[in-house]
Design a binder for these strands. Structure first.
Lengths: 250, 250
DNA sequence: ATTCCTCTATTTGTCAAACAAATAGATATT
DNA sequence: AATATCTATTTGTTTGACAAATAGAGGAAT
């Protein structure tokens, strides 16, 4: 006689799993409207709060959205690369904050992966993204730029580079990885001299890709990444020391 | 006069965001116990169902777990690489199912990224993972193996390779990417001859890494990946045709 | 004294019924 | 014809209650 483990999971969890399957399998397509909460409740033979908990689980994963009113209801979301990347970022940030991996590992992974993008980009650079990079390069040279704005432009510059890889999966991953480094990047104080160094590296990167010179692009990226990694580590150490001393003061 | 958009978000969403912040910032550490639902309700001045909805959102993201009874309650989860990779997989699968990117893009991304892992692994191969790879290699040569078991062993083989990169961030990403390809991989029917080809490539890969020959490892991986990609595309096309004809029959 | 059982208090899981708030569409008014 | 109002529908939130699991305390039997 085989004893089955019964279903001891909460009803809400089971229902949300079922709906999730339906969405993933394509049974429920983007922008499809789900039955009303009341109808779902009667169909699953549970109460409305239980249905609501199930729907909230899905909403937390950005799989559905809800609107009130007639013609309102619950609809299947079309996931965007952007949102998916953000959830990847938050996973990575969480893992990092729980010491599952270090920031230097993130930096190394980014370095390696961006090198791929560099190579792919240099193979057939796209004028649109090239123009984007040039634009950000110009922005970065404005001396009045705040540190936040400089970082934001830096992110856009690298995203344009990633876009040129013409591979959406790589984009999805890289957006997430780049984003995951922002908290540290924003901690770095860019003095005038530092910005100049970064901009020079960006320029070299831009020109190499424009000229379809993957080798030079790789070299320029290496230079930039090694430089950034050193800055990150310094910033992180500084932060650790601050934490130490302030902890000591308490 | 500036009109602020007020807070039109649902209470549950706001609360879950606040708790999420607390977890991410480290204010709430792993295995910490949250206040009871009732206490949270009174603290936030909302009803218990609202609190529950907020908690369910977090539960859906694997950030918390709940147990009934005294000494029960809601606890902060320690996220694992494994779980995070699974959520990455499901994001990727979802995006793919919604045509945000194609399976060939996933395959290409995996190819490029696994090449990185190969290079890193060959730099300083780890005996433990090498033994793991050898073990899986032996398993794959059993002729009685079912297709599913062959695929599962294939996954473990590649994961061992990825582990040798000694970079947890790359592991996290690669586990997800490899997993994202499984639905297609499982569709492929491996005839005897095909398995032999795959095993040969695995052998070459294993030996190259063992001998710290990154170049040879790269070549072996290229061979394997090109081969697999061709098989995947064939399987995918076959599936599309099946869908077409069965759709016509209905 | 030790082991086992039962009982109890605590906490999450589920339900029911109701009202609030938003909103699209119909209807009435100017 | 344009605008304002009403109404029906649907999600958002509250209250109150009971069910189910479970850790720990206390008692009974060996």
């Amino acid at each position: 006689m085989k004893i089955e483990p019964l279903v001891t999971q909460s009803l809400a969890k089971q229902i949300s799993e079922q709906l999730r399957e339906a969405i993933m399998s394509g049974e429920l397509k983007a922008d499809d409207r789900l039955p009303t909460e009341e109808e779902l409740a009667s169909r699953y033979q549970v109460s409305r709060p239980t249905i609501r908990e199930a729907l909230k689980r899905l909403a937390a994963q950005n799989l559905i959205r809800s609107r009130r009113g007639p013609a309102g209801g619950t609809f299947v979301n079309r996931p965007t690369l952007e949102e998916a990347s953000q959830s990847l970022t938050s996973s990575a940030t969480l893992l990092a904050s729980m010491d599952q991996f270090s920031l230097s590992e993130i930096a190394d992974a980014r370095h390696e992966m961006e090198a791929i993008c560099c190579r792919l980009a240099a193979q057939q650079p796209d004028p649109v993204q090239l123009a984007e990079m040039a634009k950000e390069l110009a922005i970065q040279q404005q001396e009045s730029l705040s540190d936040e704005e400089f970082c934001a432009s830096d992110v856009r510059f690298h995203r344009a580079l990633v876009d040129m890889s013409r591979n959406a999966m790589l984009q999805f991953l890289m957006y997430g990885v780049i984003e995951a480094m922002q908290p540290v990047a924003n901690m770095v104080v860019y003095r005038f001299r530092d910005r100049q160094d970064v901009i020079e590296a960006h320029k070299a990167l831009y020109q190499a890709i424009e000229q379809q010179d993957s080798l030079a692009a790789g070299v320029a990226l290496d230079r930039l990444m090694v430089y950034l990694k050193a800055r990150f580590e310094a910033a992180q150490q500084w932060k650790a020391e601050q934490g130490q001393s302030s902890a000591g003061q308490n």
